[in-house]
């Protein structure tokens, strides 16, 4: 038995992953989404090193160079203080990735345990968690986020706090429904009969089986959280200029429409492509991981 190789031991799961990868590759929109997301991640990782004018990301001033149209030196033109918009959009990817990861991560950290707890426990605990969730979902998320930022004061940290606070209820609903359908499975009963403690049942038996829908939702939410943060930035409630956040750039750039259109055009295009990429990736992942969820 000792000379069983890795590929032999994991043969069935390797076959399963191969099948998933093949399904994913067959979908051109999923591959397109993956490519966009990879480009975005690359931009976020090495943006500051490949940007032609990295010092332009934060508050440099080159007034002699202001509001130049797109050119060979400045691909996306320059803004009202002469900053290179291409560099700022490039470095803005890192800002957006951070926001997306933090908001989605915090939402999952709050939502997933609460959802499992609600699904497993039943009774007043479940009622309380689900009713609070309902209240949060009873109002458009953006409005609630704006209200929270209004209370906390504008700024990128507060915008992330606000978005995280309105984002978790979606995970509670998702995970609660999934847990409810899993809690009476035979293997969960068996674990319980063997005297497994609650946390073992939750994290070893329930959670791994909830992962697929969570991953799919998280992929979609990355895009939507980035869009949400850009929206707050556009309203002047999120990142504050000259911070290179795409929404905040558009909110200043709109004052320079239409003669200096490039100022708000390119950051908007970046938001659009990024959100589109995460949506397409999420769609593709759903088809692979969770085919029954397809709408």
């Amino acid at each position: 038995m000792t000379d069983v190789t890795f590929s032999e031991r994991h043969e069935s799961s390797i076959r399963e992953y191969r099948r998933m990868a093949a399904t994913f590759r067959r979908s051109s929109s999923a591959m397109f989404g993956l490519v966009i997301v990879l480009v975005f991640l690359l931009m976020a990782l090495i943006g500051p090193w490949i940007a032609p004018f990295p010092e332009d990301a934060l508050g440099a001033v080159h007034l002699d160079n202001k509001l130049q149209p797109p050119s060979a030196a400045h691909w996306f033109g320059t803004d009202e203080v002469g900053l290179d918009i291409f560099s700022r959009v490039l470095i803005g990817a890192r800002v957006s990735l951070q926001i997306g990861l933090i908001v989605t991560g915090v939402a999952m950290l709050i939502g997933v345990p609460l959802g499992m707890l609600a699904g497993m426990s039943g009774g007043w605990m479940r009622e309380t968690i689900m009713r609070v969730t309902d209240i949060f979902l009873s109002i458009p998320g953006l409005i609630l986020a704006i209200a929270i930022v209004g209370a906390l004061g504008p700024g990128i940290i507060n915008a992330m706090i606000a978005l995280s606070l309105v984002w978790w209820p979606g995970y509670v609903r998702l995970v609660e429904a999934k847990t409810l359908s899993l809690r009476n499975e035979t293997y969960v009963d068996a674990a319980r009969a063997l005297g497994a403690p609650m946390h073992r049942i939750l994290f070893v038996h329930i959670l791994p089986n909830c992962l697929s829908p969570i991953v799919v939702k998280a992929s979609m939410d990355m895009g939507m959280a980035i869009l949400g943060a850009a929206s707050l930035g556009f309203l002047g409630l999120g990142a504050q200029p000259p911070y290179p956040e795409w929404g905040a750039m558009i909110s200043i750039g709109r004052n320079y429409m239409p003669d200096w259109w490039w100022y708000s055009f390119f950051p908007g295009l970046a938001i659009y492509l990024t959100v589109l990429g995460f949506n397409l990736l999420g769609d593709g992942l759903r088809d692979v991981l969770d085919p029954r969820q397809r709408s």
Binding site: I250, M257, Y272
Partner: peptide
């Protein structure tokens, strides 16, 4: 697919332009 990803405020600015 693009519709959901479109930032409304940006679309509005572009349509207006």
């Amino acid at each position: 697919v693009s519709g959901v990803a479109m930032p409304m405020f940006w679309l509005g600015l572009m349509l207006q332009w």
